[in-house]
Computed example of a mutant assay.
Amino acid sequence: MALTKLLELLERLDDTHLQMLDLAAIKKQTIMDNKVDVLIDIMNRESKLVKLIGQLEEQRSEATHAFLQGVGIRSNLNLNITELSRLVFDPDHKSRLQQIQQKLSDTLQRLKQANELNQKLIEQSLTFIDYSLDLLVGRPNQEFTYHHPADKGYNNARPGLFDARG
């Protein structure tokens, strides 16, 4: 019974991570299209999914502990799925557990790659924005240190587009 619950939780975890993967694909296009309002909505949806994943992980941990107690292991071992599969003797359950493990591992790897790509796209967008601002406003070539007004050259260079002394 505990194993069935554990298998169901692992499948739900995979489904939730697949939803995150779908959002990552939408996020990629949103970043490229520079749609900030849609990006905020996606991030809110991701936040809800992350919270759900945390809850599912907690339930998975409890189901794993129940399974371990069911097979006579009384300690709170933190076993991975491969180690757990060694304790499953029913060939159908063992096969299903290994299939879920492979599926979840693949989903997590794809999600990691999508998130890395999105992070690079965001960094490139920020670099472009910074570059564009530099072109518009210009970077000052002087440091912002105190210069006595009587010093020569004090008023020669303006640090930007706007003169705040107006």
Rank of each mutant, 00 (worst) to 15 (best):
K5E: 13
E8C: 10
L10R: 03
L13V: 02
L13E: 14
D14L: 03
D15L: 14
D15F: 04
D15H: 14
T16G: 00
L18I: 00
Q19P: 13
L21E: 00
L21V: 00
I31Q: 09
M32P: 10
V36K: 09
D37T: 13
V38Q: 12
V38G: 09
L39V: 09
L39G: 13
D41A: 06
I42C: 07
I42A: 10
M43A: 14
M43P: 10
N44K: 07
N44I: 09
S47Q: 02
K48V: 04
K51Y: 02
G54Y: 14
Q55N: 11
Q55I: 05
L56N: 11
L56R: 12
Q59T: 07
R60C: 03
R60P: 02
S61T: 14
E62F: 15
A63H: 04
T64D: 06
T64W: 01
H65E: 08
A66T: 04
F67V: 09
F67N: 03
L68D: 12
V71P: 10
V71N: 12
I73S: 01
R74C: 13
R74Q: 14
S75L: 02
N76K: 09
L77Q: 14
L77W: 11
L77K: 13
L79S: 05
L79Q: 05
N80T: 08
I81A: 05
T82Y: 15
S85I: 09
R86I: 00
R86V: 03
L87N: 12
D90S: 11
K94F: 10
R96P: 05
L97Y: 05
Q99W: 08
Q102A: 02
K103F: 01
L104N: 01
S105T: 06
D106A: 02
D106I: 06
D106F: 00
L108D: 04
Q113F: 09
A114R: 07
A114H: 05
N115W: 01
N115K: 01
Q119S: 00
L121M: 01
Q124L: 13
S125L: 14
L126C: 04
T127W: 06
I129R: 10
D130P: 09
S132H: 06
D134V: 01
D134E: 01
L135S: 09
G138S: 06
N141G: 02
Q142W: 07
F144A: 15
F144K: 15
H147T: 00
H147M: 06
H147R: 11
H148Q: 15
A150H: 10
D151L: 02
G153R: 03
Y154A: 08
N155E: 00
N156A: 08
R158I: 02
G160S: 06
F162K: 04
D163T: 01
A164T: 06
A164Q: 10
R165V: 02
G166M: 13
G166H: 10
